[in-house]
Design a protein around this nucleic acid. Sequence first.
RNA 1: GGUCCCAUCGUCUAGUGGUUAGGACGCUGGCCUCUCACGCCGGAAACCAGGGUUCAACUCCCUGUGGGACUACCA
Length: 494
Amino acid sequence: MVWKGSRMVDKPRVRFAPSPTGELHVGNARTALFNWMFARHHGGSFVLRIEDTDESRSALSYQINLLDDLKWLGLTWDEGPGKDGAYGSYKQSERLGIYADYLKKLIAADLVYPCYCTEEELEEERQALILSKRMPRYMGKCRNLNDNQREALAAQGRKPSYRFKVPQVPIEFNDLIRGTIKFEGESIGDFIIVRSNGMPAYNFAVVIDDHLMAITHVVRGEDHLSNTALQIMLYRAFGFEPPAFAHHCLILGKDHAKLSKRHGSVSVGEFRKQGFLPEALINYLGLLGSSFTGGREVLSQVEMVEAFSLERASKSGAVFDEEKLRWLNAIYIRSLATDDLIMRLHPFLLESGYLPETLDPQWFKNVIETVKDELTTLADIGEHIDLFFDDRYEITSDAKQIFDAENARKVIRSFGEYLEHASGPSQEIYAAAIKHAKEKSGGKGRNLFMPVRVALTGKVKGPELDKVFAILGKDSACKRLRRANQWISKNMKG
RNA sequence: GGUCCCAUCGUCUAGUGGUUAGGACGCUGGCCUCUCACGCCGGAAACCAGGGUUCAACUCCCUGUGGGACUACCA
């Protein structure tokens, strides 16, 4: 049971209604998430509807991409493309006949009229109003045309759009997140509900579909707040009961303007390519501009659904903080089972030039286990495992400075000497070799370990040395020590 | 310009008349340690301003200021 504003409903129906005109934006993904959590939390239905009435901007590839991203995020829908329900079709381009019928009803009720103005003429009117410091809106030029005038305009080859006769009355509604919202009404001009090409305009199609699909709660971004007034007028014109509305805040960029491409990565696909886990992205989006009951910040999707509450959505815009996303991503990577992590790493390994199939599975698992804690994104993998591959082993420039100390060279030499004719399990060899080097050189602590680390891995930082050695094995370690010694004798005196 | 929305640390938030204003990211000091990372302990950091209302305002009201969204034959 959930409050709908006017009464209780036991099984709410919500929808996510994107246009397939580009990659799925994280802002839209967040709207989808809020709807999805709301439906799951209350045991209702989550409907996916494709709003593809703008033929020029919509593309099937975007739609495919959209469905794929939603699935990747784990936001499964109960009705929608690929999942028939009682209210299909779930693509607006397949519902054109329905909109045409409802247009007829409004024409019959004398609530709309054809408008023959061209886009150029409308633009002229707009500019004139702006110049005279008045609000740009449609002044109703075609509202009172008689039949003769209409025929004359049509005879010129003009195709009419249809405008709704906006009643000049205040509109008030209760927003589940924001409380009472009032629009005075005088500033709204007659708006187009059907375009001259016959396609329904957004506000018109939305109202019909939400009603026909029995949507009980419309949860969407604050950018739709002013559309709500227009939509409520249409609900009244049709005699439909409006759904409850909830307008959440927008995601902002660093400059506090609505997050957009110029702020950097904004699409789900981009974050996916950058090695973010869907668990992390979803968790972060659920935290942005909202909070969970109980105040927890790291939650599984099941826990998010449980702790979700629309009332906890905040009213002011939320700046997208990629640092916090990265923090969450690292947490989720660490919590992954190693086998699972390896699977998810696969595309990133290929991209970094590794061929996982050619590696010994147990050995590689050890490698991943050893570096798991250091990863922030999956895409980081290459720079953390390169030291385990002989063909990638390379002594970095800041590592070379370690060799400046005479004692460091002694450590490496003695460590290597011991290794050459040692045998037995890696752990024992390592421990013994370290002991030997310590005695021979007198070094300890970082003066002992750093030279070995650098000779073995080529870097001044990395996982614990004993683990590294165990993975490398004696032969590889010897090879590297010899190379380090060669480098030293060639480049340094003494 | 018009309409509408919003206002707690740098950022995300908790807070619903009486709190040392809490947590998280980031930053920072320390511990752990061969290093980095992880982990653990600590620190700096906020109620936009002015008026009311009240015994008492971050919290309620008004005004101002600031920010944002919308203002298409796009959704």
